[in-house]
Design a protein around this nucleic acid. Structure first.
Lengths: 349, 349
DNA sequence: CTGAAAGCGCTTACAG
DNA sequence: CTGAAAGCGCTTACAG
């Protein structure tokens, strides 16, 4: 009752050629829609191909043409948030191109990463998409050395023009979110960031600072919490913030996962969102609209970034020049139901 | 400033052989760890391979051996819930095997599916994993005909032993959830199901019925809501249920996405979970623990299912017999904070 | 222990 | 319009 992996009745081009009574060359031309075959002959061959349910051999074709039809995507872990949004964009673009998408998750395991890299280098990929916030084993360097086309997605540790990258206007996102909160009347706005040794988190913080300064609101160091871009940060830091002598009236997180953590603590303490606390997230991941209440967040155009990155990669693969090596798509504030004027604000009285 | 896709300085086995002054055969033996090479010669060759940073050509190898090292996974859409859980399991198992995972999303587009199927048939896959609740173009039939190894994950429209499948004990899950609610003192328990023409949703409902009957509680048809396995069902049906002359005190949904919809409506109407309404989900998707309050749900061992399916596939590919063509892993109830005795129940007084 | 040679199934100049 | 032939880079009997 188990299946046999045996490959029966799989035809080769040679067999088709013999059946029709022509050369392999001619069959190949028909198969690849190339000129140099008479109309009736072409039709006859197509018929036989169809009748016999013939399909080309991928490996042989690949060997001759030097292309695998494969694009590899490397990411740390599929979390279902940020990465999933980008993945959706990639898939859309890939599908149109006729390539297949290979997914590889590093799990931050160096040994596994090296193995993967080694495997890529054997010409089994047409190009790679990097969705790694940071890396330790010099993937970009190796890729560059072996002249394997690639583009990096999302903000990386350091700016570079050595290779194509795509990001979004993070700083502006930080600014807009804070400005919005200020416009609602908030003056004590907390920010939960990611590790500040990473540039893109510093960018959010800088945007936050800029907005406060513009409004003439002094920056309170007690309201700046450095986390590790995880949900747990939201939990931990929110507890800390609530226990402050003078707690904030709004919390701005550096991603939506952290905002989820904030929600949890607030729920536990029966602090109503947005009546008693405003929350703004970052990314606009799929599930933000489904949160209770729906989260106001800074949207990164995730799908668009994935799509753009894929198209850039495809362009490189085809040998076309890129207009620019680094592209930033713009962020925007998506206003939903998690913000309101602070209670003590004149606006809400 | 743009990258060239040109493949420079990529060595072939022949070049290595020439460099060392041996035959290609010998190099191949070393590369594949086969006997028939003297120790010093082996070491010398390994050295040269390393020095030159040589990597094998994937396509040539594939052509000779008839294997691609690729496993294809087909799913409708990556939603970030059920499918993501299974995907995690697959990735773990794949990684150990040394294969690469190709992901394909059908988006329920028949044309795209046909194209994909056609491409698979050209021997470019070692095997495929099917994560499709139902299908229209006869994928399993085509795979069977072309003797491409595959296994189907999750419950499908009809039971079959024609090919390997893996699922979980759905009926039992429906039973356990309902039984738990009853044990808390609930008597008016609503169920939001998926389309009842699909067997696995009928199984949940049957489990629900069985538990009620065992407890001597009459089944109220008004409390049975047929949805479409989407979050929107949760929203819609919950509204309907709340407007009933005698609303339920607990709601059991057929997946966690629907439960999220239930949460939304309850939040809007200021109905507290679990004080004023108990909710049980199904699947135990990643985000359930992060909901506010954390959702009590029937756990499907998603990762385990993915892992098991992958291992089964790998076995088939290697020509080993399967112990069983259909495997069901057991569901279990994960109790978190979304359930409590009903208000009017004697238990809570 | 070592290697010459056939062949995997295609594509592509090139000649007729 | 049609086809013979070389060759992509390997692996694997087989012979020495």
């Amino acid at each position: 009752m188990t299946m046999e992996p045996k490959q029966n009745k799989r035809l080769t081009m040679a067999q088709i050629a013999k059946e029709v009574g022509v050369s392999i060359t001619t069959v190949s031309k028909v198969l690849n829609n190339r000129p140099g075959v008479g109309d009736e002959m072409r039709i006859r061959i197509q018929q036989v191909i169809k009748d016999n349910d013939y399909v080309q051999n991928h490996a042989a074709r690949h060997l001759r043409k030097g292309q695998s039809g494969l694009i590899d995507l490397a990411l740390m872990r599929l979390e279902g948030g940020y990465d999933l949004g980008i993945l959706h964009g990639i898939q859309g673009a890939i599908e149109e191109s006729g390539h297949r998408l290979v997914i590889f998750t590093t799990n931050e395991n160096e040994k596994v990463e090296r193995l993967w890299l080694r495997r890529l280098l054997d010409q089994s990929t047409d190009g790679v998409l990097l969705l790694l916030p940071y890396e330790r084993i010099g993937i970009t360097k190796a890729l560059l050395e072996h002249t394997i086309p690639f583009v990096a997605i999302g903000d990386r540790d350091e700016p570079t023009t050595d290779f194509p990258t795509i990001g979004s206007t993070i700083w502006h996102g930080g600014y807009t979110a804070t400005e919005y909160l200020i416009s609602l009347g908030h003056r004590r706005i907390a920010i939960i960031t990611g590790p500040l040794h990473l540039m893109n988190f510093r960018a959010r913080l800088a945007g936050y600072r800029e907005a406060l300064e513009q409004a003439g609101i002094p920056v309170d160091p007690a309201l700046i919490c450095e986390g590790n871009y995880l949900l747990g940060d939201g939990v931990e830091q929110t507890r800390r913030l609530l226990d402050l002598p003078e707690p904030p009236t709004a919390i701005f997180t550096c991603n939506d996962a952290q905002a989820t953590g904030v929600y949890q603590v607030l729920y536990q303490r029966h602090i109503h969102i947005p009546d008693a606390m405003s929350v703004v997230g970052f990314d606009d991941v799929m599930y933000t609209a489904q949160m209770s209440p729906p989260l106001t967040t800074v949207r990164q155009p995730l799908a668009e970034m994935g799509k753009m990155a894929t198209n850039m990669l495809l362009q490189i693969i085809e040998g076309q020049p890129l207009i620019s090596n680094h592209v930033e798509l713009s962020t925007s504030l998506v206003i939903r139901d998690s913000c309101a004027p602070p209670r003590q604000s004149p606006l809400s009285m």
